[in-house]
Design a protein around this nucleic acid. Structure first.
Lengths: 131, 131
DNA sequence: CGGTATCCAGAACGATACTG
DNA sequence: CAGTATCGTTCTGGATACCG
């Protein structure tokens, strides 16, 4: 045998790139908030703006377009006056729930420091209603 | 009852900001790859460089410093000559495994399009050895 | 060997104004 | 109402060179 401590990890796992991509898809300052709002169901553009006060029209549009191109959001335009546009999660986005669950579990468990004996609960079941 | 279709989501969940933060922590072009390497155990700076050929010293240092400040990586300097520095995951980082598992599961399930009847397997069990 | 210091390009973000 | 256009700022990633 050569060594049992650890190995230089020759090329153990080719999954990293896909992980990268998944993280890229979720990156974007407002993607999380937007998806969160959409967990509750369809939302109109203005509803999202009001629900996320700090976002500008520009950024909201941009991030929604990104999510649409990434296949996470479906955009429906109603040819009425005044115009109405509704956004909703696609199945792919809904399947992100476990990811978000783990993510928020982790965020709450290690919110600041692991040496911080925080409440360490009140998380994980945060949003067990919408999806 | 008022409406049963859906509600404007008044302020259902204050977890979104933490979710944001968690995603920010994982953002960064090389964080995923670095953490992936560290799953196998302690790694020296040069080992990481060799394991991730496309990264520059600058970026590797930067991302490692980020991870260190985020409490995900512990840096150990050995005052020898030639210098030796080892990096390893903290417990907080190890607790990210479920997140990465779900993330890679999702990435493989929805790698490109949900309408794409891809192999849809060969994933999820990709890296059940290191951690 | 394991960094740090500079500089630079491009992307992401944001404020403001205008439009169908 | 739901955008688009433009512009400026900030952030991120990367190339190169030098240091203890």
């Amino acid at each position: 045998m050569k060594k049992q401590t650890n190995e230089p990890t020759p090329s153990e796992c080719p999954a990293a790139p896909q992980l990268q991509r998944a993280l890229r898809v979720l990156s974007g300052k407002w993607k999380g908030e937007i998806l969160w709002q959409l967990v509750g169901g369809k939302r109109r553009f203005g509803e999202l703006r009001r629900a996320i006060p700090d976002v500008t029209q520009h950024m909201l549009t941009t991030q929604l377009r990104d999510l649409e191109n990434e296949g996470l959001v479906k955009r429906t335009v109603f040819p009425e006056v005044p115009p109405r546009v509704e956004y909703e999660m696609t199945p792919a986005a809904k399947d992100l729930k476990p990811v978000f669950d783990e993510l928020s579990r982790w965020a709450n468990a290690h919110g600041r420091l692991e040496s911080d004996s925080e409440t360490a609960n009140a998380a994980g079941k945060a949003h067990d209603k919408g999806l």
